[in-house]
């Protein structure tokens, strides 16, 4: 079971993801530079957070044309698990592997703070170890995390159970006050229809150790490991 962390120019959470896998999950993990043309037989792809290509034009808009993204797309189409965190989520949206787009946060500010998330769909490889409705607390750090899709797409996401996480208050209520950025329906993370691609704005890799405030992010990586150990999706 081997993980790939894709590094783009401007990625800055790649080492956190690498360490989350190597030290906490104790699984093999490799960096793959965005200009490479092979995923080197990795079993799970992580698109880390950061500011790929300086967020020029739109977040993720240029990174999606990096050579490795062709391989990531093929991998996702073959049902391989792909997780995009923060800028990684934005890249997945731009590449069309996930529906919708990101707008600037409602308050226009870059927000860096812990948030509560409610697990909505626990059937994906990334959320299978969570209980439905389980609340975890992990940080966000973004300026463009205001998830948008048109009404029809939002209905489809909700009806198909593609909303993986919602921003909520400590009691698990997805209130307007608990919504940090203005995302429609408090959406913090979604999967594709088949469930093998997850995009989420909050950073599980920054919540791997109680010493740093929370280790609630571990369960997401543990879910993936368990999934990879137990057959395909």
């Amino acid at each position: 079971m081997k993980f790939a962390v894709i590094t783009f120019p401007g990625s800055n959470c790649d080492y956190d993801c690498y360490r989350a896998i190597r030290d906490h999950l104790q699984c093999p993990v490799e960096y793959i530079w965005h200009r490479e043309d092979s995923l080197r037989s990795c079993d799970c792809v992580i698109l880390p957070g950061g500011f790929s290509y300086g967020d020029y034009l739109r977040t993720g808009a240029i990174a999606r044309f990096s050579p490795i993204m062709r391989r990531v797309t093929e991998f996702a189409q073959r049902c391989g698990p792909v997780i995009g965190i923060c800028n990684g989520f934005q890249i997945l949206l731009e590449s069309g592997l996930l529906p919708g787009a990101m707008l600037v946060n409602r308050g226009l500010q870059f927000i860096c703070q812990p948030v509560h998330l409610r697990a909505e769909n626990t059937n994906s490889p990334f959320t299978a170890s969570l209980k439905p409705g389980q609340i975890i607390r992990i940080p966000i750090a973004h300026k463009e995390g205001n998830y948008y899709a048109d009404d029809r797409m939002i209905r489809q996401l909700e009806d198909n159970g593609q909303v993986a996480f919602r921003y909520c208050d400590p009691q698990g209520r997805p209130t307007p006050e608990a919504n940090p950025n203005g995302s429609i329906n408090n959406i913090a993370g979604i999967t594709n229809r088949r469930g093998n691609v997850l995009g989420m704005m909050p950073h599980p890799e920054r919540a791997m150790d109680k010493l740093l405030g929370s280790d609630d992010g571990r369960i997401i990586f543990q879910s993936i490991a368990r999934h990879l150990g137990g057959g395909a999706c």
Binding site: L57, R58, A61, I62, F65, L93, E94, P99, G100, A101, L103, Y148, A149, D150
Partner: peptide
């Protein structure tokens, strides 16, 4: 292809 995002 790139200069605009047709979703938004």
């Amino acid at each position: 292809k790139i200069l605009s995002n047709p979703v938004i």
